[in-house]
Design a binder for these strands. Sequence first.
DNA 1: GCCAACGTTGGC
DNA 2: GCCAACGTTGGC
Length: 151
Amino acid sequence: MNYWLMKSEPDTFSIDDLKKQPTSWDGVRNYQARNHMKNMSNGDQVFFYHSSCKKIGIVGIAQVIKEAYPDHTSWDPSSNYFDPKSSPENPKWFMVDIEFVRQFSTTLTLASLKENPELESMALLKKGNRLSVMPINEIEWHLINRQTQSN
DNA sequence: GCCAACGTTGGC
DNA sequence: GCCAACGTTGGC
């Protein structure tokens, strides 16, 4: 089992949206993020992170329910995520499906994560980090998870 | 709204 | 293959 963090702008797609139904994580157009998704397995656990919003931070947990498969929006000319270099025969971009697991009673804010010296090495907290899909190591996962309660 | 950091593109 | 220019991300 592996652990991950995925960012989403809640104005576009929030954990409340995920709660209603599983979703396919389409639209990732960054090689590093794509490669991380290709490394995901069914059952992998995901911190769900709200970015670019009022209360930035980890808001809950999701899990992978379908492993990486071609992102069809990449060859759809009407899609915002269209990439002319991708085709059904030779797909360039991939996505996974995730479903809701639980929501934290309070947002584990970015500011509070930064205050924890044990989390210093986290990729998320590195300056200038813009990756929308990143791995979380097991120690970090449990450290963070321990600080949370479910709704 | 600002801007630093980063990834990508394209000319050379 | 280098690197300047550009577009995007995302915290503040």
